[in-house]
């Protein structure tokens, strides 16, 4: 199991039997540039689509509030300069 959050609430206790048999729980910290290069190459090849909700720059608080309340479908994006 790989946990990708940079911050999480405390992890509750679990029965050791769930971890026994050499099961692994690990965190994921940041990424290397190689990760980014490999992923973006693959993203173009697949190609990967993203579902986004666009907000103007001045609505950053509103976008983050929506994210906190699970009201974003996909990813929120701030639009800054256009054209």
């Amino acid at each position: 199991m790989a946990l990708a959050g940079i911050h999480m609430s405390p992890i509750p206790p679990l029965d050791y039997s769930l971890l026994y048999h050499e099961r692994v729980i690990r965190s994921v910290a940041n990424n290397t540039r190689q990760d980014g290069q490999d992923f973006l190459r693959l993203a173009a090849e697949i190609p990967i689509r993203t579902e986004i909700e666009v907000f103007p720059l001045g609505d950053a608080n509103r976008a983050l509030n929506a994210l906190k309340n699970d009201a974003i479908r996909g990813a929120a994006v701030l639009r800054v300069f256009q054209g």
Binding site: A4, N31, A43, T50
Partner: peptide
């Protein structure tokens, strides 16, 4: 969103 959600998900 590819730049963090994408890359960190990939890692």
């Amino acid at each position: 969103p590819l730049l963090c959600a994408g890359i960190i998900g990939f890692r």
